[in-house]
């Protein structure tokens, strides 16, 4: 199935390579030719203002929206008929902006469903994966019997991330994990994202909270009105005066 990749390249294996991605809602184009790439064990962040097209980008990559352009995932050029379910099977996972939890099910059931496709393809390690997820998010274990719809905002985000991890993803896409959370929980979530990187998963992190995102990311992209206006190693981006002015403020915290 996969292209043979020389073993010395494994650490820098490109997981996702996107060229000239265009997405339109009806006749209105929301993304005008976006290019980006992510390697194994790397965090790439996409920052940008409201309405820039960040969610659109992730939805298109996940196959929820039709897109044109070139998408190469794990060495395979994606055809026009990209299906969410097929991408899930290949290890792509999205934690959407709206979380999309199963509100009337328990935390534990939500998590188990994260492993549905692995279960369906004959893997029976979901209980071990569940324990691993509980190690990442001990809070979820305390609340395993509680209905997802009754969780607090922070817990909901943890559940959404935990559910995504149940699929043992190769590419984890997070849409604004800090949305609506208190600073302390944001810190905790970002600490976990940083730790996750060590497991070798590639992470595509979409954020409004540019400071925190650039701190943990390896590379960054600035998306404005559907176009990538700046990109580069996140350290350089964080020092770029244009980024400082628009997204970081003048050295002030938050």
């Amino acid at each position: 199935m996969s292209h043979v990749i020389p073993s010395h390249l494994h650490d820098h294996e490109v997981i996702l390579d996107v060229r000239d991605l265009r997405v339109a809602y009806g006749k209105v184009e929301a993304l005008h030719g976006v290019s980006l790439s992510i390697r194994r064990g790397e965090i790439a962040t996409v920052i940008g203002p409201n309405g820039a097209g960040k969610t659109t980008l992730l939805s298109a990559l996940m196959g929820l929206l039709p897109a044109s352009g070139e998408i190469v995932y794990m060495g395979h050029a994606q055809g026009r008929e990209r299906e969410v379910e097929a991408l899930v099977r290949q290890g792509m996972t999205l934690v959407p902006e709206k979380r999309e939890l199963f509100a009337e099910m328990s935390v534990e059931d939500n998590l188990l469903l994260g492993a549905f496709d692995r279960y369906r393809t004959g893997h029976r390690d979901h209980l071990e994966t569940l324990d691993e997820v509980f190690e990442w998010f001990p809070r979820l274990e305390e609340r395993r019997g509680q209905l997802a719809g009754t969780l607090s905002g922070g817990e909901r985000q943890m559940l959404a991330m935990g559910r995504a991890l149940m699929a043992k993803p190769k590419l984890l896409m997070l849409d604004e994990p800090s949305l609506g959370l208190a600073p302390l929980i944001i810190k905790e979530i970002f600490r976990i994202i940083g730790e996750l990187k060590k497991t070798g998963v590639a992470i595509l992190l979409v954020e409004q909270n540019a400071r925190a995102a650039l701190q943990i990311a390896d590379v960054g992209y600035v998306l404005e009105t559907g176009e990538v206006t700046l990109s580069g190693p996140s350290g350089e981006l964080a020092a770029d005066p244009r980024v400082v002015e628009a997204y970081l403020g003048f050295g002030k915290k938050h």
């Binding site: 996940m62 929820l64 969410v84 379910e85 899930v88 099977r89 996972t93 999205l94 959407p96 999309e100 939890l101 199963f102 509100a103 009337e104 099910m105 469903l113 994260g114 549905f116 496709d117 369906r120 559910r163 699929a167």
Partner: peptide, 15 residues
Amino acid sequence: RATAMNRTGARLMGI
């Protein structure tokens, strides 16, 4: 049940 509750969420789980 998941599909009945949240179709998009279910698709993201590969259902």
